[in-house]
Amino acid sequence: MLTKIIEKKWFALVSLVLALLALWYAAALVMNGKQIIQNYERKHQTWTYSQVIDQAYTVKRPMLPAPHQVAIELKKSIFDKSVTSKRSLIYHAQITLNSTLLGFALGSLLGILIAIGIVHNKTLESSLMPWVIASQTIPILAIAPIIVVVLGAINITGVVPKAIISMYLSFFPVTIAMAKGLRASDTLHEELMYTYNASAKQVFWKLRWYSAQPYLFASLKVAIAAALVGAIVAELPTGAQGGLGSRLLSGSYYGQTEQIWAALIVSALLGSILVWIVGLVEKRLLSRRGGPANV
């Protein structure tokens, strides 16, 4: 009976979540407790451990808010506010989502185009590839404000500069995977196209484009997550008025740790949903060829 329960998938999941919550509560107690004790000692007051435990989960501006405090903050900023309110996380998530999706679309397109160039032209490969790789070694935090300021100087503001930073992060995995995928077609299929006297264009659109798709989708999952990170990072240093990044920033200005954690959890959820949607499209498109594994 007991072994049967342990073998269940939900059992593993629930135990993991419970373990994480226990760890979180313990960490909150230690980190906030230290702060409370310091407070008492600064005021030369006596304190007991029961006092510390009492206050660790209720103190204002805790070092680490407990899970239930974050849950309350989430409820307040998601369900208790109208979605047009600047205090609603849905409002901010939707701003971030806009630039994520635009950046993801631009990045995927750019990635695919660079990969096509690289695969069809040896000179492009040797001249472009080092720049593609170098672009990813530059810290995005350093380059994001520069991009926003430069684009702002030529009157490009709003969603576009943020999307460009998302694009900057998301084109890379697509380029690498597509460059591999476009070369991954079966030799037998290539020879078949050769016996048909197919043009390079026909070989691309009827063979390479399809044999690259499993690689493309694997990279699109990475790219959409990277695009979300790019959008949030772009909202951080630029004084953006909205978006999950600006919530993180204002939370840290005012020591609102619950607000920071709530924004973090919403962005994690948003990322999971986006990756899940890409996976769904992948499954739909690749299942007819016998599943994504069967290429």
Binding site: E191, L192, L207, R289
Partner: peptide, 10 residues
């Protein structure tokens, strides 16, 4: 006609 069918899986 090759040794393997070589049909395009998609």
């Amino acid at each position: 006609v090759f040794q393997a069918p070589g049909l395009l899986p998609w």
